[in-house]
Nucleic acid binder design. Structure first.
Lengths: 184, 184
DNA sequence: GTCTATAGAGGGATAGAC
DNA sequence: GTCTATCCCTCTATAGAC
């Protein structure tokens, strides 16, 4: 079971795209095999079970988000880091409308899954913990509550854009959040 | 196909509970039959397809939420109506932790479903439109944006409580929202 | 109206040739 | 390491007796 290889990458990438569009449960191994050009029977050489593929997708989502957060951390000012991250949902509002938040929509599905429920908190917890670290670095009172609010608002924004199928809701919501952080 | 009957009610009620706990896709007709005490083959006398059961669940969720909103509308002051509704997530925070928002979590799943995608906007749109009507009645500027923020924050709150499996996030989030509305 | 039995399709997983 | 063929189970839906 190689941890890295060309075919494994293609399978994982295909799985990630399909899960984003359809969800875990809806995505079949046949879908993933077809989309990645790997024969169905060969999928099991790289991933023992479908469950393993899904956890790999979760891990790759977390890695991707870590990269986005790391880019924001190049600013020395925690307030600017929080503002910097807001460019992400704003710049990806069409993707949010089409597929929802890559962390939140997956977490939401997994939280009802039974076997993958525990993966769900990792996804949303990542953003929440990062935001809390920033608010604490700012030295404001109530950093935990502010981080919750920051995270909840962004998750709610993604959920609305996706379920209402309308990306025009993103800009006003992000603008109001931005203004509130600037006023802190 | 009777629109109302004892067995139909039991089936719908069982479906609603199971969908809340597991989601639509995960819930099987056998689950619903067992849970309601109706034999599997008889389910099809009351609902032609599983798709029909799911839309009936959506309708019943919307009806239930309409009742909650109607109760809030007994107050003549739109600000108090908005505050009144906040008692709902606060009083049901344990249910939110266990199952997520009955509107939002279902809408989130259906938005990736293909055949039921269109039902998704009805669920979340209900709360958004109601909130917007209240803010407009208050005569504040930016009622649409305020309604979006109200809805997004509540949906985000439910998503966090559910995916983090932690109901202690609800109270601080609702409190902050309450304070902001009182300050308007 | 009610229920049993089962058809029929789909999907996860495996055997085993190469 | 790769891939075909297929097993086996689950689930939706129907047929048809009562």
């Amino acid at each position: 079971m190689p941890r890295t290889s060309d075919k494994r990458d293609r399978l994982l990438h295909a799985a990630d795209r399909l899960v984003l569009a359809q969800g875990c449960k809806q995505t079949t191994l046949a879908d993933i095999a077809r989309e990645s050009g790997v024969p169905l029977g060969n999928v099991y050489y790289y991933f023992r079970t479908k469950h393993d593929i899904c956890t790999a997708v979760v891990d790759s989502r977390i890695d991707a988000m870590r990269d986005v957060l790391a880019a924001c951390e190049r600013s020395p000012d925690p307030r600017r880091r929080l503002l910097c991250f807001l460019d992400y949902p704003l710049g990806h509002r069409q993707a949010l409308r089409e597929h929802g938040c890559p962390l939140g929509s997956l977490a939401s599905e997994l939280s009802k899954s039974g076997t993958l429920k525990d993966q769900s908190a990792r996804l949303v917890g990542l953003l929440r913990n990062w935001a809390q670290a920033q608010f604490e670095a700012m030295g404001v009172a109530d950093a935990p509550a502010l981080a919750l609010e920051y995270t909840a608002l962004l998750q709610g924004t993604s959920l609305l854009a996706h379920t209402l199928d309308d990306d025009s809701v993103v800009e006003p919501l992000v603008s109001r959040l931005r203004a509130r952080i600037e006023a802190l």
